[in-house]
Design a protein around this nucleic acid. Sequence first.
DNA 1: GTAGGGTTAG
Length: 562
Amino acid sequence: MYSKFGELHTAVALFNLMPRKNIMTSNILIGGFIQSGDLVTAWKLFEEMPERNLATWNAMVTGLTQFEFNKEALGLLSQMHEIGFRLDEFTLGSILRGCAGLKALIPGKQIHCYIMKSGFDGNLVVGSSLAHMYMKCGFVEEGERVIKGMPVHNVVACNTLIAGRAQNGCSEEAVDQYNLMKIAGFRPDKITFVSVISSCSELATLGQGQQIHAEAIKSGAASAVSVVSSLISMYSRCGCLEDSIRAFLECEDADVVLWSSMTAAYGFHGQGQEAIKLFESMENEGLEPNDVTFLSLLYACSHSGLKERGAKFFELMVDKYKVSPSLEHYTCMVDLLGRSGCLEEAEALIQSMPIKPDAIIWKTLLSACKIHKNAKMARKVAEEVLRLDPQDSAPYVLLSNIHASAKRWGDVSDVRKAMREMKVKKEPGISWLEVKNQVHQFCMGDQSHPKWMEIDGFLKELILEIKERGYVPDTSSVLHDMDAEEKEYSLAHHSEKVAIAFALLNTPVGSPIRIMKNLRVCNDCHVAIKFISEVTLREIIVRDASRFHHFKAGKCSCGDYW
DNA sequence: GTAGGGTTAG
């Protein structure tokens, strides 16, 4: 009774007075200490026990995995094995959770073998944990096989499948599974909504996201802070910052994740000042920012050109909040310095940081070299990128762009030759948008859309019209060796331009257009879309690989800084 | 006593 009411030390005092200490009482105490987070005392009791049963071991293994002492839990498991204990569903569920946390596939597979032999493979808890372990290790298909092999399902099994797909980049499949689970008669809970709403942010399918939000409200799960965090991110990534703000303000039990997701949302829309204000209010509320909060904040500073503020926050993070900077934090800082033109400083940071640089951080610096047209540094940096990731097309494309904008055509063709030799291909640009709950996708060079002729004709007219207003095609981002006319044709068919033409033809006059793109918007498209927003009197919102651009009346919200 | 989830650099 005492251990249930949290008066553990009273319980221990009583326990010590007992002339004969039985296993059950000790087990209850161990469980109590684990629940209160005092693993040290739980461990001490465990060690002192002259005799332990399966429940004792299970309590300890579970306790260790609950607090992410996964390696230690695996150590206990092997001791259990040596002594000859038979593992039950409680042991198996917990230890699989530990394996998932460690992304330890090999021990996970060994446990899978044990499960098959001991006949636990039809057990819902064991099966879900096993599938979760595979999914966390990146083996989606194996996880699916485990879930589908179970004779009965429940909400947790469905959620395991949905979350596993969502976390492994199979967002569409996650949404499909969500629909299937409803048909099968399972009632989605807050964990379902978190996963499926996150998938909608990944897909940037606003209509779908709104519908699922409505379903979450009906089910009563929409006010859970974890669901709100995913909603903030979803609305932000679908281009509706206002809805993110509304969700944030309406949430009653805010935590650090909620604040971080709102910070990220502001950053994503280029509202660095707002992100900073938010961070300051968070500090005032007495909430402790974490590594992700700072990542979002630094990102927001970087995308708004707030170099000094960003640098100060980096210091604050290390000195006051004792968050040790990760490679991601350094990448953000390199981006911040590089974008604002301090290329040498950015390079010096990479050289001096205590973590080994990867291809991504060098690529970040390379983009900055492109923005600030520093061909000399770009060459050097491109070499670093290629050394770490020889198949990456980005350094070739960026180098070629830099040479092309300086009209060094010989250098451009050298880069092209090197690409051919290395068999590196540029990732094709893809843009997509939702019209009446249907997703339309346009890929550079693909004319398969049923309305292609109509779209193409309209696009030609549109380009002519914006040329009259002063648009001059910027062919420097065309990679191939072509004559000027071909280059212009190629440029005019960048997937975002095609998608916008399609949207103008198929959405109500005056309504905003939302386009998503897998790559970053090129400079030419950026200029062209500004003109298009002016001549068509439309607000055009483009999400590219890195952030949002809100085009309105000939201007972009990024202030041409991206 | 056991299982599934939110924010995140380029």
